[in-house]
């Protein structure tokens, strides 16, 4: 039995240690807000926070998480940066199809938690690994700046 701390709660899952966290979240614990995209850490749709840092859950064996706190899209609104990002996302109407949105918000929230006033290069460095097939990158950048400026 693997013991996980997810969004402030303790969750237990009877899964093999090499199962990626994404499978545990979606198929075992029913937290389906985190999306499967490529499965090889190249699209960002499955991004969660691990100890506050962004991590691709599709390549993260659940047995390696240990005591580190996991935050998913279902819980990120409870963090200051996460709440700001979600509000700005709605304000700018960032999403088009929405599939990449969970991952984009998780990466953006982690960026703002560590770099409260990011410049364009900081946004590139943090967000380049999150693909958007609809090409909403300009709105994503805009929303991150708006979230950074908000109180």
């Amino acid at each position: 039995m693997t013991r996980l701390q997810i969004n402030g709660e303790v969750r237990n899952a009877d899964v093999p240690a090499d199962m990626p966290l994404l499978w545990v979240l979606r198929d075992v614990l029913g937290l389906t807000g985190t999306k499967f995209g490529c499965g090889i850490g190249q699209c960002g749709a499955c991004t969660v926070h691990l100890g506050g840092k962004p991590a691709r859950s599709c390549l993260l064996p659940v047995g390696l998480i240990g005591e580190r706190e996991v935050t998913t899209i279902e819980g990120v609104g409870a963090t200051l940066a996460g709440a700001k990002v979600q509000k700005a996302w709605l304000g700018v109407e960032v999403i088009q199809c929405g599939y990449c949105q969970s991952g984009q918000i998780m990466s953006a929230a982690a960026l703002l938690a560590g770099t409260p006033n990011p410049d364009d290069s900081d946004i590139d460095a943090a967000m380049a690994g999150n693909l958007c097939r609809c090409g909403t990158y300009l709105r994503i950048r805009d929303a991150i700046k708006r979230a950074a400026a908000s109180r």
Partner: peptide, 17 residues
């Protein structure tokens, strides 16, 4: 930054494994 950072991090110490 597009293809490598998510696993290898800017520090070179992977957040995953």
């Amino acid at each position: 930054e597009g293809a490598c950072v998510s696993c290898h991090d800017w520090t070179g110490v992977s957040p995953l494994t």
